[in-house]
């Protein structure tokens, strides 16, 4: 992409900002799974997230919260209803459009880290940028290293993903999710298999990210330590929003 093209794109995105009230807006979402019989997992979900907010989604396993998260992240499509991300309707986009949207707008952090074991920590962090088909300049590399510094994993930047502790892997995944300055960071049980200390570190990081970059955070968690510190807790029960509490 040429410099001017990037510039135009940035201007466009600034314009877009004025066009939407919520960074994520779910309208009347139903989700069915078909495995022989149709099972409804989400029932008429209406949910909005303000840009720059810190949110958690809690609920028992099987409540549909992961499905909700996957729909939020455009990895899954609702059976019915509308999904708007940063003002754009996504439930009707093509797979390739969604891929671009995810690459540019959404950062993912999963419970099982999901680093690419073939790559070093730094290369993993750079991957979203590479996927955007832009040239990795020394400036971009510097940005990645700065991100890793910010997250406290610069020492292991040249380690293969498999040669890191769970906490380091998760923090690498977080650095990676931030590489393209996403508007939204989606985390699905990000501390699910981390110890208490690492959990606190990850949470504090989320807070710092939110403050430093203004990233909207949506975290699925069963960890009270995490949820109690977010500004909003959404409890999903039986595929419905059971509670929606603001701090």
């Amino acid at each position: 992409m040429s410099k001017s093209a990037v510039k135009i794109k940035n201007e466009e995105s600034i314009k877009e900002k004025e066009d939407y009230e919520y960074i994520v807006d779910l309208k009347h979402i139903d989700k069915f799974y078909y495995t022989g019989v149709a099972t409804q997992v989400l029932f008429d979900i209406n949910l909005q997230f303000k840009a720059g907010s810190v949110n958690s989604i809690v609920g028992p396993s099987g409540s549909g919260k992961s499905t909700l998260m996957n729909i939020l992240g455009t990895l899954d499509k609702p059976t019915k209803g509308e999904v708007y991300i940063a003002g754009k309707r996504t439930d009707q986009m093509s797979k390739n459009e969604l891929a671009i949207l995810r690459n540019q707008t959404i950062g993912f952090v999963f419970q099982f880290h999901y680093l690419l074991p073939e790559y070093t920590a730094l290369e993993n962090v750079l991957m979203p940028f590479e996927i955007s088909r832009q040239k990795v300049t020394s400036k971009v590399k510097e940005k990645a290293i700065n991100l890793m510094k910010f997250i406290g994993i610069e020492d292991v930047k040249d380690n293969l993903a498999t040669k890191m502790s769970g906490g380091q892997q998760q923090r690498t995944a977080i650095a990676r999710s931030l590489m393209n300055n996403p508007k939204i960071l989606l985390a699905d049980e990000p501390t699910g298999n981390l110890d208490t200390e690492a959990t606190d570190k990850v949470y504090n990081l989320f807070r710092e990210i939110n403050e430093k970059f203004g990233t909207t955070l949506i975290v699925i968690t069963h960890e009270r330590r995490i949820a109690e510190k977010t500004d909003r807790i959404i409890e999903i029960r039986d595929g419905k929003i059971h509670l929606d509490l603001y701090k």
């Binding site: 109690e228 509670l243 509490l245």
Partner: peptide, 10 residues
């Protein structure tokens, strides 16, 4: 006291 326990209260 803790806002997370609102869920338990509910």
């Amino acid at each position: 006291t803790n806002y997370f326990t609102l869920i338990e209260a509910e």
